[in-house]
Design a binder for these strands. Sequence first.
DNA 1: CCGTATCCAATGGGATACTG
DNA 2: CAGTATCCCATTGGATACGG
Lengths: 128, 128
Amino acid sequence: MDTDPAAAPAWNVLDERCPTRQVLGRIGEKWTMLVVTALTDEPVLRFSELRRRVGGVTQKMLTQTLRALERDGLVSRTVYPTVPVTVEYRLTDLGQELGATVQVVRTWAYANIERVQEARTAFDAARA
Amino acid sequence: MDTDPAAAPAWNVLDERCPTRQVLGRIGEKWTMLVVTALTDEPVLRFSELRRRVGGVTQKMLTQTLRALERDGLVSRTVYPTVPVTVEYRLTDLGQELGATVQVVRTWAYANIERVQEARTAFDAARA
DNA sequence: CCGTATCCAATGGGATACTG
DNA sequence: CAGTATCCCATTGGATACGG
């Protein structure tokens, strides 16, 4: 079988200790997918533009989300020393790949939200 | 343009009040993707099998996650009146579609977790 | 403009015990 | 076996104020 010592580890997200759970964890954070989506729709955005586009996000959470994405190598941050300072965010190549998969989720959500809502209504009605 | 009154609403997940946010919310819950993944790998599973496969999940959270998925029409639950009772879970057609998109996320995670980890190390080193 | 810091309310989710 | 019911703590994230 696979005895090549340089082979990639056999990841298994169902294993509690698999590091790929960190990726799901990041995606699961409230604002991650939305920020990635915004930067997919409009590839270069300043902090304040991002804040306006991502409905409901607070300054604190936007900063926190962007730092986390930057740390994971998914977003790059460019500072221009104007007065006051200008900061631009964009997805890295890696981030764009994630963006593509987030698009898949978004597309599924757009296509099926009504079916989900109907299912909820039916489920709740059956309980009443 | 689109003036058909029967046309689908123009969803926009970046809008704070868009119902599609509920889908992202559900996906973001800690165990949702993992349960869907388990049921994608093995289409029919009993409660206790599911519990063994999804590493780290507690009884409470598995029940809660399954109920939520059932309510959304993503999972179906079948009870056999044996003693003790036997319960089988499987993805609905809608759930299988979601499962396919979750696979995309999982595949991305498997392919890129190492790059993410390297990025973190580099980011943290630059701060020290 | 782009953050950081602090405080605090809400929620998520784990541990445990009990039931049909 | 497959849940339900509590208790309770840790984390998330919102509001607000301040700083470079």
